[in-house]
Design a protein around this nucleic acid. Structure first.
Length: 902
DNA sequence: CATTCTTCGTAC
DNA sequence: GACGTACGAAGAATGC
């Protein structure tokens, strides 16, 4: 049996970018980023890899910039149109795609892809390897040499044969250069011999065999006019031949192993496809990966790791750690939520490579290869509780909290790779270590869910086999350690280091402390509220059933829509994707026509208060302390804000009487008070500062009622003449500006005509000319830079601004305005939190900070400290940053959170 | 039956 | 389609 020859697939990457771009036209993701070329390219590549399973493969690209051909002939390719912007934008993604697929790629400045392909072809043939040139480009026909070099176009599944080339050009592939030297190539601006076309060239080459022979025998060429042309354009002919000839001596890698396809980088590919929203590719990728590695006892990975499974080993490890200048730390917990979980393991990554894993369990777990967490941590306390060694980790807030639960305060936090990755690009979906490592190191490490599973079938980390746990955890610790210098450099390059070191890093501990403290919630109060809400719900439901003359699930938008719009025949005000909308705005409008709408609104409110708040909060009270411990997420909101979850304490009701009952269930410890400190109009003040609008500045400097002042500006009256209605409209516009609201939105909100709304907005900008200018320049700057920036230099990329889709582009414009305002507010309150924590620590006061709600900080203070705490908090918050306008803080206090609002 | 998507509503 | 940032409950739809 003869051995199948090895094959080398050389993919003409650049030409497929073009083809894919034009084939899959005008596709974008939901953010307006063009994705067609990437999709087409991915499909092409898929076909090559799946169907042909090449032994060796390389995707070859043209390098940007001039080539040696431009040096010999400046007008080379000068008539080419510039590649479309939205194609160029996709090229980095295509290169990522190739890399993530595990496929080698190549480009070399000064050369075209064709030269690299020719060089590699030549070399491969010498090695007895069959070559398939993957391209549909006619220029590459000249490489065809049946059967060792073939040319194939996967899109049409067409193999170009030698005889086809002969048919087309009258010469074998190897002589195509002579043909082209004569006729030229208008698409590349190759001159050829003027006046000689296809027919003549074929005849000449048929007769003489090659260009050189033609010129050698020029005198004997039959037609005088042809002879004349050849004579006259000899230089052009020779130049043309050099232009169309491929170089076969390009200095490129010539190691066969370098061209063997590697395994795909799973999480990177998934990340890429998710970003580009390639649903079908995602599906098939997931299937493929599940099929190929059936939860394969995951490869141990490259990280050298050891397990400290005894106290002796642990003590040795602790000693070694104590001598290190810097270590990385990765904690493994039984659950996602740090406050609610226990330590299941801990690993340390060392500077000189390798990592140690310490399997941990509850007290009395010596027997099963784990160490009791309490005992083990006691031994590690000298390492964890001191600032040396410096600690690096991916999500050190979680680490801080789980250590604190064992009485240890983690010190020496030097770098958090999760926070750094967020700061570098805060728009990402998540910052799991696998994703960040993929991007940062180009490596494929397991995600937490790869190890524990997800959804219903997820298991606690403590049930994972120790060897597997160690492999995962050490890989993570090691990755974090190696990512540190990379991320650090990137932060420097983006001038984000100061924001990182002065704000985000110290904030980690501040947040950890707040989460650890929690806030007391009155369980009985919540319970009795739940019962009250339920009673009211029952009554409301009965009324609704009476009006509808049947029972149905009021919480089902579908059933409700049937009742309202079919049975009762009410007007369809607006629609959702799946049917008529029944949201609040619609119901408010329908309330004018039918009494049922009001009752549904009441029902919805009650159901919300009971389900989302009273019941859900009750379940999250720690039975031991009676307190609720939210999680603050530092890496979620694209603007730089924090978010809060499990539970979300940043959306506790306040606007209605009923809702405030929920808020009143948050209480201080006995003998203490809750103190709430709100930044007044912080975003509008930031707008004043950024825009330098004279009227806005003046309004805040004079501490005026900003909405009244705005109304006065708009309606051309004095502030005392402003009516409540005028003020209401001005207030809506003031907020609308921050969000980039247009006439339509304002009209809806104020229930006025779009035309009136447009006039109102015009009047606003007549009053605040500086704001208009700020908006225009801010959008323009963001368009140029590709990102928006806050006062402290936080960045958010806004690719939407480059979209060809107008709606998406307008969204980009709103983001470009909103992000610096919302983000600067976030910067400032984050700094205020750090300053407040510091000031309280140094004050001797017992007051502590419990909550942050975007522009509000909530403290718990002993009654007798109230005055001192107020003074301190106000000073810290108002002095957080020197702006062109004063920052104003409003303080309130009371025996519950509802009362604490002035 | 489990998971994901959709709709709705709360906060700033 | 039209106002930015979040989180989460419940129903509906989809997939295994």
């Amino acid at each position: 049996m003869t051995e199948q020859a090895r094959t080398f697939y050389l993919v003409d990457g650049s030409s497929y970018i073009y083809r894919a771009y034009y084939a899959v036209s005008r596709l974008t993701n939901s953010r307006g980023f063009p994705t067609g070329a990437v999709l087409g390219f991915a499909q092409m590549l898929d076909k090559v890899v799946r169907e042909k399973k090449p032994d060796y493969i390389c995707v070859v690209f043209d390098a940007p910039g001039p080539t040696f051909r431009h040096e010999m002939y400046a007008p080379y390719k000068a008539t080419r149109q510039k590649a479309p912007e939205d194609m160029i934008a996709q090229i980095p993604y295509i290169k990522d795609l190739v890399r993530f697929r595990g496929i080698p790629q190549m480009e070399l400045p000064g050369y075209e892809a064709d030269d690299l392909i020719a060089t590699l072809t030549h070399w491969a043939v010498e090695q007895d390897i069959e070559v398939v040139v993957v391209s549909s480009d006619k220029d590459l026909h000249q490489l065809i040499d049946d059967p060792v070099v073939r040319q194939w176009d996967p899109q049409k599944d067409r193999v170009f044969m030698e005889w086809e080339v002969e048919d087309r050009y009258g010469v074998p592939p190897g002589r195509m250069v002579d043909y082209l030297a004569l006729v030229g190539d208008s698409s590349d601006n190759v001159p050829g011999v003027k006046g000689i076309g296809d027919k003549t060239a074929r005849q000449l080459l048929q007769e003489w065999g090659s260009l050189d022979r033609i010129y050698a025998n020029l005198a004997r060429v039959g037609s005088a006019s042809v002879r004349d042309k050849l004579e006259k354009h000899r230089e052009e002919a020779l130049l043309s031949r050099r232009l169309v000839s491929f170089r076969e001596d390009v200095p490129v890698e010539r190691k066969l192993e370098a061209f063997a396809p590697g395994p795909p980088l799973k999480s990177q590919l998934i990340g890429l496809f998710e970003e580009l929203e390639f649903r079908s590719l995602l599906d098939s990728l997931r299937k493929e990966l599940n099929a190929v590695e059936p939860a394969a006892a995951a490869p141990a990975g490259r990280t050298k790791h050891k397990i400290a499974g005894s106290m002796d080993e642990l003590r040795t490890l602790a000693e070694r750690l104590a001598g290190e200048p810097v270590v990385s730390i990765q904690v493994e917990t039984t659950r996602k939520d740090a406050m609610a979980s226990d330590l299941a393991g801990l690993s340390f990554g060392f500077e000189d490579d390798g990592a140690w894993y310490v399997p941990l369990g509850p007290d009395g777990s010596e027997g099963d290869g784990r160490l009791p967490a309490a005992v083990a941590l006691a031994a590690l306390e000298p390492v964890l509780g001191r600032s040396r060694p410096a600690k690096i980790g991916h999500d050190l807030k979680t680490a801080w909290i789980v250590f604190k639960k064992h009485g240890i305060e983690l010190r020496g936090i030097a770098f958090d790779t999760m926070v750094a990755a967020y700061l570098l690009d805060p728009g990402k979906q998540n910052y799991g270590i696998d994703r960040v490592a993929a991007e940062c190191l180009g490596e494929n490490i397991d995600s937490y869910e790869d190890v524990t599973g997800k959804g219903k079938s997820q298991v606690g980390f403590d049930t994972i086999d120790i060897g597997r746990a160690a492999a995962y955890s050490c890989a993570a610790a090691d990755a974090a350690r190696r990512m540190h210098p990379v991320l650090k450099r990137k932060l420097d390059e983006s001038r984000l280091t100061e924001l990182f070191e002065k704000i985000e890093l110290p904030l980690i501990t501040v947040l950890a402390r707040m989460e650890f403290r929690g806030i007391t919630a009155d369980a009985e109060k919540l319970e009795s509220l739940s019962i009250d809400f339920q009673k009211a719900l029952d009554r409301t439901a009965d009324t609704i059933y009476d009006l509808a003359k049947e029972k149905f699930n009021i919480q089902s938008p579908k059933q409700l829509a049937y009742i309202l719009f079919e049975k009762l025949g009410l007007r369809v005000v607006k629609k959702t994707k799946s049917g008529p909308s029944t949201d609040m705005a619609v119901l408010e409008e329908l309330a004018l026509e039918h009494p049922i709408a009001d009752h549904v609104l009441v029902f919805r409110t009650l159901a919300k208060l009971k389900g989302t708040y009273a019941d859900a909060l009750g379940k999250l009270i720690n039975p031991r302390t009676g307190r609720i411990h939210t999680s603050y997420n530092q890496t979620v909101a694209a603007t730089g804000r924090l978010s809060s979850s499990d539970p979300n304490l940043q959306n506790i009701p306040i606007r209605t009487e009923e809702g405030r009952k929920i808020r009143s269930a948050f209480i201080p410890a006995p003998g203490w008070l809750l103190l709430s400190a709100d930044y007044s109009q912080i975003e509008l003040r930031i707008l004043a500062h950024c825009s330098k609008d004279e009227h806005l500045l003046e309004a805040f400097r004079d501490d005026e009622d900003i909405h009244r002042r705005t109304a006065a500006e708009m309606f051309g009256v004095s502030p005392i003449e402003v009516t409540p209605e005028m003020r209401r409209q001005a207030k809506t516009i003031n907020f609308g500006i921050i969000y980039g609201m247009g006439p339509f939105g304002l009209a809806q909100r104020l229930r006025i005509s779009t035309k009136t709304a447009r006039t109102a907005i015009d009047k606003y900008f007549q009053g605040y000319r500086g704001v208009r200018r700020f908006i225009d320049t801010t959008i323009e700057l963001a368009r140029r830079l590709g990102y928006s920036e806050t006062l402290l230099g936080r960045r958010r990329f806004i690719p939407e601004l480059q979209s060809r889709n107008k709606t998406i582009r307008q969204l980009g414009e709103r983001l470009a305005i909103n992000t610096p305002l919302q983000g600067t507010a976030a910067d400032l309150i984050k700094k205020a939190m750090i300053d407040a924590e510091d000031a309280l620590n140094g004050s001797g006061l017992r007051t502590v900070m419990l909550l942050q709600v975007h522009d509000e900080l909530v403290f718990e203070t002993p009654r007798e400290e109230l005055a001192a705490a107020q003074e301190l908090v106000r000073r810290v918050m108002e002095d957080v940053w020197k702006l062109d306008v004063p920052l104003k803080v409003e303080l309130g206090w009371g025996d519950n959170w509802a009362e604490a609002h002035a």
